[in-house]
């Protein structure tokens, strides 16, 4: 495994996990934007970013939900090394959901910053 990866300590605070709950699925969709990824690969990329690092196993229920909601699809692909990998890929609906989130996010981010830094009033 990659040394120096973010720690997977699941004991992070309720604020961090609450925040993550809202945005994690869009981060996952964003990771799939440029092409299919298999589970282990996807989780490693998420873990590169400290604030998104969570117990890896908790992402699988999220991935299942994205699949059931028709935002992502999966398929198995043989691998030269070891077992077949299950790849996740964006559907058109998934791409639309990601676009919607991408469009909303800047205003959302600005609004939160606005409340957190009252001195910053425009």
């Amino acid at each position: 495994m990659v040394p120096g990866e973010a720690s997977y300590d699941s004991a992070d605070g309720p604020v961090a996990s609450q925040l993550r709950r809202g945005v994690l699925e869009y981060c996952v969709l964003a990771l799939l934007r440029d092409g299919p990824r298999y589970g282990v690969e996807l989780l490693q990329e998420l873990a590169q970013v400290q604030v998104m690092a969570t117990s890896q196993g908790t992402i699988y229920p999220l991935l299942s939900r994205l699949r059931r909601a028709g935002l992502a699809e999966t398929y198995l692909r043989e691998s030269a090394s070891g077992p077949s990998r299950r790849y996740y890929t964006l559907t058109d609906d998934g791409r639309r959901a990601l676009e919607e989130f991408t469009a909303l996010w800047p205003a959302f981010r600005t609004a939160v910053d606005h409340f957190l830094n009252p001195g910053d009033l425009p």
Binding site: Y8, S10, A47, S55, Q56, G57, T58, P61, L62
Partner: peptide, 11 residues
Amino acid sequence: RLGRPQAVADA
């Protein structure tokens, strides 16, 4: 890295 079974089950 997968996390505690409890955390995975809760999720």
